[in-house]
């Protein structure tokens, strides 16, 4: 039932064959366990995504100190002359 190769690709993982086999077994056991939910009558029930509705709000238009470049330097993301160094993400 589970197309592990497809799921793996969607999840951006690349499992070793042995790992794939173990995880597939676990997944099948776990997903089989979910079958118990078939007993529940969900007719006319609305899904609940959040426990209480979240409300969007606007922050006050006030300046405050955000991240300083000195704080980010520890992660070695600052190259020089205030330029940020990012990893190569263009081009296939």
């Amino acid at each position: 039932m589970i197309d592990i190769d497809k799921i793996e690709k969607l999840a951006a993982l690349k499992l070793k064959e042995k790992e794939k086999e173990t995880i597939l077994n676990d997944l099948e056991e776990i997903i089989h366990y979910f079958e118990i939910l078939k007993e529940v009558n969900i007719e006319n029930v609305e899904p609940q995504i959040y426990t209480k509705e979240a409300h969007l709000f606007l922050r006050k238009d006030e300046t405050e100190n955000g991240l300083c470049k000195e704080d980010l330097e520890k992660n070695k993301t600052l190259a020089r002359e205030n330029f940020y160094r990012v990893k190569h993400i263009i081009g296939e």
Binding site: L37, V40, V45, P47
Partner: peptide, 8 residues
């Protein structure tokens, strides 16, 4: 389905 069970 799980989200509906959550509501119940």
């Amino acid at each position: 389905k799980a989200s509906k069970v959550r509501k119940i």
